[in-house]
């Protein structure tokens, strides 16, 4: 089974005759015998997801890497983080997906108004199944815990993804507007409630 390992700012993907999907153009080197094929606009999830994605503007362009050997993947020297999924769901901004193993399913979840304001698309991507997904971020990712009575408010630009039973609300208040300034793009913040983890990167824009 394909194995993803984060190595500094490079992802090592070890293939044993199977397949992974990786962001188009992210391959920096390859050892062994690996075929690359554009997976098109798909990004997994079939026609239905592709259509939703087109409507939502959540763009993702992936390629199939098949064969035996090691593929080195990197994107703009951003930090790499590998998340193991065991049947649960990771919600993530599509621009942060570097690669994922074959068994995972990518789908689109409409996120309401948030996308309009953050310019990150109307929807977010959900990754479900058993396998590994590699994320890229500006600076290392912090996993912040959310529990009842322990809400978390996040700058939309610092938000990478989340997992667990979380609900995300848009917060728009005078307080927040004064924080980001008039006309500087982000009149909303994200408030997370419930149980789970929120992944936050260390750069706000």
């Amino acid at each position: 089974m394909a194995q993803l390992t984060a190595h500094k700012r490079v992802l090592h993907a070890d293939l044993q005759g199977d397949r992974i999907r990786a962001a188009s153009g992210s391959m920096v080197a390859v050892e062994g015998n690996v075929d690359f094929k554009s997976a098109g606009m798909g990004g997994g999830g079939g026609m239905r997801a592709a259509l939703k994605r087109a409507v939502a503007g959540e763009s993702i362009s992936l390629m199939d890497c098949t064969g035996h050997g090691r593929v080195y993947l990197a994107l703009d020297a951003m930090d790499v983080l590998v998340v193991d999924l065991a049947g649960d769901t990771l919600t993530v901004e599509s621009e942060h997906i570097l690669a994922h193993t074959e068994q995972l399913r990518l789908d689109v979840q409409f996120a309401g108004l948030r996308g309009v304001t953050s310019g990150q698309g109307l929807a977010t991507t959900t990754v479900t199944g058993h396998g590994q997904v590699a994320l890229v971020s500006e600076g290392p990712v912090m996993a912040l815990e959310v529990a009842p009575g322990q809400d978390l408010v996040v700058d939309p630009d610092a938000y990478v993804g989340s997992r667990g039973q979380l609900s995300m609300n848009l917060v728009s208040g005078v307080s927040w507007k004064s924080l980001v300034g008039e006309g500087s793009g982000e009149p909303f913040s994200l408030r997370f409630t419930g149980h789970g983890l929120v992944l936050v990167q260390s750069s706000e824009r």
């Binding site: 984060a6 998340v83 996993a143």
Partner: peptide, 22 residues
């Protein structure tokens, strides 16, 4: 990893093996 929210036990989100809370 901090268990305690429903569903399957969540492995830590990153290689750091730790999550942060207040």
């Amino acid at each position: 990893p901090q268990p305690g929210y429903g569903g399957p036990p969540q492995p830590a989100a990153g290689p750091t093996g730790t999550t942060l809370n207040p």
